[in-house]
Design a protein around this nucleic acid. Sequence first.
DNA 1: CGGCGCATGTAACGGGTTACATGATTCC
DNA 2: GGAATCATGTAACCCGTTACATGCGCCG
Lengths: 189, 189
Amino acid sequence: MKGLEYVLLAGLWVEPRSGYDLAHWFQRAAHYYWAAHHSSIYPTLAGLEQAGLVTHQLVPSEQGPKRKVYRLTETGKDTLQMWISQPPQPPEVRDEQPVKVLAIDLLSPEEGIRHLEAAKSRAQEQRDMYSALLLQLSAEEDDRPQRQWLGPRLNLMRGIQIQEGYVRWCDEAIALLQASTPRLEAREK
Amino acid sequence: MKGLEYVLLAGLWVEPRSGYDLAHWFQRAAHYYWAAHHSSIYPTLAGLEQAGLVTHQLVPSEQGPKRKVYRLTETGKDTLQMWISQPPQPPEVRDEQPVKVLAIDLLSPEEGIRHLEAAKSRAQEQRDMYSALLLQLSAEEDDRPQRQWLGPRLNLMRGIQIQEGYVRWCDEAIALLQASTPRLEAREK
DNA sequence: CGGCGCATGTAACGGGTTACATGATTCC
DNA sequence: GGAATCATGTAACCCGTTACATGCGCCG
């Protein structure tokens, strides 16, 4: 079994969802640790169903066509549990931003700082998004306290922490760039 | 042009390197923001050379066959600069670890804590590796102070910070797991 | 003289992205 | 009636990984 299959099992373990829901989940809460488009999600869900790891139920949507809401079967849960027990593969990342930082000396200090400010803004936006999701989760937790929301909560906490770290790093980097060009401060005055 | 091509240009901007060097760089310093295997690096370098963005020089190695040490051409530098000036694409990540955390309630608290301790150890190892690389970089900086090592330095700082954040999160997560099972503490006494 | 680290390459295969395709419902 | 969001799917193509392949030079 390939990576995405287990990831979908984990996503469905948190709560039953449709392919559409999962696609949105990847774009928002899960974005900092996994990426997937709907065009890979739908076929994979179909495969999992054929393998007997998930089943779906047609649920009328408030708007648009009927939703195929998937949930884990017992076998699916067992498969997931076995996978969880094994150590994770090392993460794979493709992030252009640090690559661009590598050659930041190709930009003027002013431009470099502008880019870092932009990166900082993006990080703050992301942080706010994760914070909002965490608040939302807490509200849902009150409604159904029996549910195990520990995993999603831990991951949202991590998402917030990552973005806050990024913001701090941006500030340090900007400070370093400014220090390397004291004429900037002088001109400011 | 595709992502890897620009990344190689950036890697060669930092200093002239062989494909072998670049492969190792991806495994170590660049590992937290970009992944690439030698089998994709060599053909890509050849393509960049054909496009006139890099040139190579055969340099005898201390051990093994001659090294093809690549460096940017003027066109290569210009191409890189143009790419740097544009905003980066959003990062793409595949990290199994947070996915496994999602369903951490499928494990016993003891097992969950063991997994988090393991994750913490891995993060500490990585942090130490980045710290060592930063020290090494500082030493080289003394030798050739004219060189612009700002980019690599900033990225190593970021690597260290990421891993330290991870360690802190692991501690928080372990604490939460322990809090959710007070019987553990009780048994400890 | 075998094994390991250095060093560069090629080819098949697989998985995901981009683009194509369809249809329901609501709001303006 | 057109636009936007909801909702599910298919197919071609591209890129990168896995595996295959080769050869140097040192050390034990």
